[in-house]
Amino acid sequence: MIEFRGVTKTYPGSERPAVDDLSFEVPEGEICVLVGPSGCGKTTTMRMINRLIEPTEGEILIGGEPNTRISATELRRKIGYAIQQIGLFPHRTIAENVGTVPSLLEWDKERIRRRVDEMLELVGLNPDDFRNRYPAELSGGQQQRVGVARALAADPPIMLMDEPFGAVDPITRERLQDEFLKIQQDIRKTIVFVTHDIDEAIKLGDRIAILKQGGTLAQYDSPENILTNPASEFVASFVGTDRVLKRLSLTRLEEIELGPPQGNGGLPRLPEQASLKDALSEMIGSGAERVLVISGEGRVRGSLSLDELRRLSGRAG
């Protein structure tokens, strides 16, 4: 668990704080997404956790202990950090890059080797192909995965990820996000994730901290609550006028109660993993008033009508 207690950071020579009196908690095993406009203090907030930046006021507790209890280098070896610019070591192979913290912790060679392969597999890179390459021989997206693998390598309970999917195209990005959520289901790390993309925040976050200019916390809540009850004009405009759609994108067809399968085979069919937003899009696109929901085995599980969808989104506010 990570707890911010009245944390303020004023950079030397600056009159106004970059982060102002921040207090919030990230429960163990959850993903907390820091989101907000450029310059609102997301990176500053994140870097105070592993003491790359020291707060001017307040304190940060990790597992109930102030993060100043142990030395900064020791602390950082326990916290995985994937920086925004990736920052792989150009002179080290992919295996050496991923093995950085394990070798700092003096794991034996064989254990490091196994761990490196495991991490590369985890982020979807074939170890035999990538182990001995240098970073310059990888695409941007592949480098970003190595950055995440490197941050995970020593199995730290806490991960800090600063726009880790920032440098890839939207399709790859979506795939990386899906993989990331799948991995998190297994590893259950406490993750602080920075993005300036509200859609990414809604998709990945168990909780979202929306920061505004001047480094104050505008709202800290679950994605559902932020979309349903934005705390202020600022939050409402930040999440966008399409927040009803965004909320629909949070719910998958398998999570709702479906109507009986009606009509004939002419209705559009959607897999049960698709979101309500996908269903709406399908209805608008095809002109149908109803879609059929198909299970993994290809059976028709039920149907969803436009009226029902309207009712569901109405609850979304």
Binding site: A72, T73, R77, I83, L104, G147
Partner: peptide, 18 residues
């Protein structure tokens, strides 16, 4: 030396000497 490389090294807990 790319500054982000040094930043990443610091973030992973390498000492100034390392």
């Amino acid at each position: 030396v790319p500054p982000e490389t040094i930043d990443a090294a610091r973030g992973m807990g390498l000492t100034a000497r390392q």
